[in-house]
Structures are given as C-alpha cells and as structure tokens.
Simulated scan of single mutants.
Amino acid sequence: MSDSPSRLDLLRFLERVQVGDLERTRSWIATEEKRLAAEAARLPPVPPPDWLIEHGIGVGRTPVRVHVGSCWDTRSRCMPADRDAARRALADGVEACTHCRPDTALGVLD
C-alpha cells in the first residue's frame, strides 16, 4: 500500500485551503466596507448643485429641461450649471421642469 495521499484526499485538502482563503477575503471585504462607511459618516454629504440642465438622448444631446439642483425629477443625463447658464437655457427656450419650477426661482417667466 502506498503512503501517498489519494487524489481525493488532495482535492479535499485544496478545498479546505480555498475555503479558508475565501473566508479571509470576505473578512477583508467586511473590514473595508466598515471603514468606508465610517469615513462616509464623518464627511458631510456633497450638496447638490444649485441648477441642473437635463440633456436629451443621442448624438447632439441638446438641453431639454432645466431643474433646481434639489429637484426629485432629475435623471442621469443632468449636468450641473451655474445661475447664468440656467437663465440662458431658459431664455433660449429650454423647458423648465414643471415640478421644481426653476423659471420661478430664477425670476424668468414666460
């Protein structure tokens, strides 16, 4: 009889090593998640921009709507804008959001 371990014994040993590695990696991930959460809790949230300009879909991506920065009806196609850019967009005929009414807040009414 041979003193060397069987192929099955070797595979089970490899499995134990890999499970240990996986548990160690998961522990590192949990530690890093806790660290990031604690860091995020210390930092104040980034304030929203004062104004947003929503752009359309496609090649030209022209402006389609202006929003107040804190509007709940914004989409991922919004870009931050300063007061002058928002006023210019409204003056150029870009639609004002009907929910947050940036035209009222900027004093630009049709």
Rank of each mutant, 00 (worst) to 15 (best):
M1Y: 14
M1F: 15
D3Y: 04
S4Y: 11
P5N: 00
S6H: 00
S6D: 05
S6V: 06
L8V: 15
L8A: 15
L8E: 14
L8T: 15
D9E: 15
R12F: 09
R12Y: 08
F13P: 03
L14Q: 15
E15T: 12
E15W: 12
Q18W: 05
G20N: 06
G20E: 09
L22M: 07
T25N: 03
R26A: 14
W28Q: 14
W28A: 13
A30G: 13
E32V: 15
E33A: 12
E33C: 12
K34G: 08
L36I: 13
A37S: 09
E39T: 08
A40K: 12
A41P: 01
A41Y: 01
R42E: 10
R42Q: 15
L43D: 02
L43S: 10
P44L: 08
P45R: 00
V46C: 00
P47C: 00
P48L: 01
P49K: 01
D50I: 04
D50C: 10
W51T: 01
I53G: 01
E54C: 13
G56Q: 03
I57A: 13
G58P: 05
G58A: 03
V59T: 14
V59H: 14
V59L: 15
R61A: 15
T62C: 04
T62I: 06
T62M: 01
V64I: 14
R65Q: 05
R65W: 06
R65P: 00
V66A: 02
H67F: 04
V68C: 04
V68N: 00
V68G: 02
G69T: 06
T74H: 12
R77A: 10
M79L: 12
D84T: 09
D84G: 02
D84R: 11
D84A: 05
A85W: 05
A86M: 00
R87N: 02
R87A: 15
R87Y: 09
R87C: 09
R88S: 13
R88V: 11
A89E: 02
A91F: 07
A91R: 13
D92Y: 07
G93H: 08
V94N: 13
E95Q: 03
C97D: 01
T98R: 11
T98A: 11
H99L: 13
C100F: 01
R101Q: 13
P102C: 10
D103P: 07
T104S: 10
A105Y: 05
A105C: 00
A105I: 02
L106F: 09
G107Q: 10
G107K: 08
L109N: 04
L109M: 11
